[in-house]
């Protein structure tokens, strides 16, 4: 039970035939050789496989590739400019030493990119003060440490680099 599909991965159209059981994560890593999304828990609990799907952050281990024919997938690798210049979040993780072993880092960076866009669009979190946006008018949510920690809670770092990860994200959020 196979299906044919095309994924636009980091700007490149990639056509492939997959067994329907193939997750988006396995399609990227094993079939297309795009290894920046990492397989940690494979159950949606650790966030290391986070990618941007149509611009929104999701865990790629809990969705089947077959359900995403024609979709745009951006991985941490694809966030960099074509000429190799790093994305501000990538640079900030380097500047603030936002990792130790690095395994969770591509997921952290994709998640942070998606999260910054959500906050910019006015999406609240559990840490957002009640009554924010009176009249329900969405406005960008300022990101302090509590907001960043809450919004990034889907990304685990077993090395415990959280302090520096928060610093790296704050540096970009404050721009």
């Amino acid at each position: 039970m196979d299906s044919q599909l095309t994924l636009h991965v980091d700007g490149e159209p990639r056509s492939l035939t997959v067994d329907n059981r193939t997750t988006l994560l396995d399609a990227l890593r094993d079939r297309l050789g795009v290894t920046s999304p990492k397989k940690g828990c494979d159950h949606g609990q650790c966030g290391s496989c986070t990618v941007l799907l149509g611009g929104r952050r999701v865990v790629s281990c809990l969705t089947f590739a077959v359900a995403h024919d024609g979709a745009e997938v951006t991985t941490a690798e694809g966030l960099a400019e074509a000429d190799g210049r790093l994305h501000p979040l990538q640079q900030a993780f380097l500047d603030h030493d936002g990792f130790q072993c690095g395994y969770c880092t591509p997921g952290q960076i994709c998640s942070a990119a998606g999260m910054l866009a959500e906050a910019e669009a006015g999406h609240p979190s559990s840490a957002t003060a009640d009554g924010d946006g009176p009249g329900g008018v969405p406005r960008p949510v300022p990101l302090d440490e509590e907001e960043i920690r809450e919004r990034m809670s889907g990304n685990l770092c077993r090395c415990g680099a959280y302090g520096n990860i928060v610093d790296a994200i704050r540096a970009v959020a404050g721009r």
Binding site: S111, G114, S125, S153
Partner: peptide, 16 residues
């Protein structure tokens, strides 16, 4: 309703 939704899962999972 908004608070309950935001209390559940993670940003990635709520997007899906």
């Amino acid at each position: 309703l908004s608070q309950a939704l935001l209390a559940g899962a993670s940003g990635q999972l709520r997007n899906a």
